[in-house]
Every structure is written in C-alpha cells, then in structure tokens.
C-alpha cells in the first residue's frame, strides 16, 4: 500500500520500507534517532527526497493536501488553532461515534484550554481518523493515557487495521507492538532497521 524508497532529509535516511494494507509497523529507538522526523518527511511536512508510492500513485503527482488526507500523520503533540473542540472537527461524517469510542462522547462542547494532555491526544487521533486515511502515521499515540484509555485507543486502531488501514507507529511502550500485532523496526541515527527478533512472537 505505502512504499517508501530512499527517503532522505539532511538529518535522516536513506530509509526504505513498505507497508501493506492492514499491516502495522512499530518503530522504537532512542530520542533523537529521527523517528518523528521520519514521520514528518513521509507526510511531506519537511523538505525531503525519495520515492513514495501510495497504491502505485506517486506522491509527486498528488497535491500535498490530498496526500496528507490519505496518509495521515498525528504528531506526539498536536496543534489547536481555535478555542473550542468542535471547531477542530468536520461536521460530517459525524464524529460522535469515534469520540465515544475513546471515552470522549461529549467533548465537542469543551474548550481547548481546559483539556488534559491525554484528552488532547485522543482528540487529535479522532480528528485524523475522521478523514478516513489509508495510512496512519502515529507518534506515541498513547504516551499520556491511563491504561483504560490505552485499551480504548488500541481497540480503535485494531479495528482500523482490520478494515485495511495501514499503520506506522512510533512507540516507547515495549508491549504495545505485540498487542497490535506489529512488525518491529528500530531507528538509530536516522536509519531504519528491521528487527523482527524472535522474542517479539508470543
């Protein structure tokens, strides 16, 4: 589904990998290894070179906004440009069901300034899912969540994987890749290594 070849920026790469529909790759690695920069480069937020294909259509042939709607990146800390939660969501499709699934059923009326970090994290994910992307690039999507919320989010992600969405995940939670059935990759000094080690299988 998503194929990345020779992706490089001044700070990372070259990075190559492919991500199939319904597949999940989890990237671990020390801080400063370039994990977030890799996700930013795939989303085309920073200048970068490389061949990226989504279902055989090249990224260069797609306008950047369309690419980002189909390959959705949710940073570790998202931005909020308006005062209310509702202003950050599309009115259609109705976000109510998605919000309820992460335990934030009546969040639309809330003010952004009163949200906790964990609430923001879940809202940012829902905001991206509303666009029904083909590929999800998630940077530590559960880092600020309590265990029940982590479970909600992981169930939501598993349902997306079942529906054919591909998932590229940066995580420091050692057990999360197993729970999501993810392949393990490791990032070090801007390079990505396939590390599907035996201890990953249950």
């Amino acid at each position: 589904m998503l194929s990345v070849e020779d992706l490089r920026t001044p700070l990372i790469g070259p990075v190559s990998f492919t991500l199939k529909a319904g597949e999940c790759i989890a990237i671990s690695g020390p801080s400063g290894a370039g994990k977030s920069l890799l996700l930013r480069a795939i989303a085309d937020l920073d200048e970068n070179n490389g061949t990226l294909l989504l279902d055989r259509s090249s990224r260069d042939t797609l306008p950047a906004p369309e690419w980002r709607r189909r390959v959705a990146y949710v940073p570790a800390e998202s931005g909020w440009w308006a005062d209310t939660v509702e202003a950050h969501f599309l009115s259609a499709p109705d976000p109510a069901e998605l919000l309820a699934s992460v335990g934030l059923a009546d969040a639309l009326d809330w003010e952004i300034s009163r949200l906790s970090t964990g609430e923001r994290q879940r809202l940012a994910l829902v905001r991206a899912l509303q666009l029904k992307p083909d590929v999800l690039l998630l940077d530590e999507p559960t880092s600020a969540l309590d265990p029940p919320s982590v479970q909600c989010v992981e169930q939501l992600l598993l349902a997306r994987l079942d529906a054919g969405c591909a998932l590229l995940l940066v995580t420091h939670d050692a057990d999360q890749p197993r729970r999501l059935g993810a392949k393990l990759h490791h990032m070090k000094e801007g390079r990505l290594f396939d590390t599907n080690s035996p201890q990953a299988s249950p």
């Binding site: 940073p75 800390e77 931005g79």
Partner: peptide
C-alpha cells in the same frame, strides 16, 4: 509560535 497549529491544519489536508 503557532507552528504546531498551522501544521495541524496542514496535516488535515488544508491548503
């Protein structure tokens, strides 16, 4: 100062 906010909108596919 609002880099994150601008990029949040870009990431949702806005121009």
């Amino acid at each position: 100062k609002g880099k994150r906010d601008v990029e949040a909108q870009l990431l949702l596919g806005r121009s």
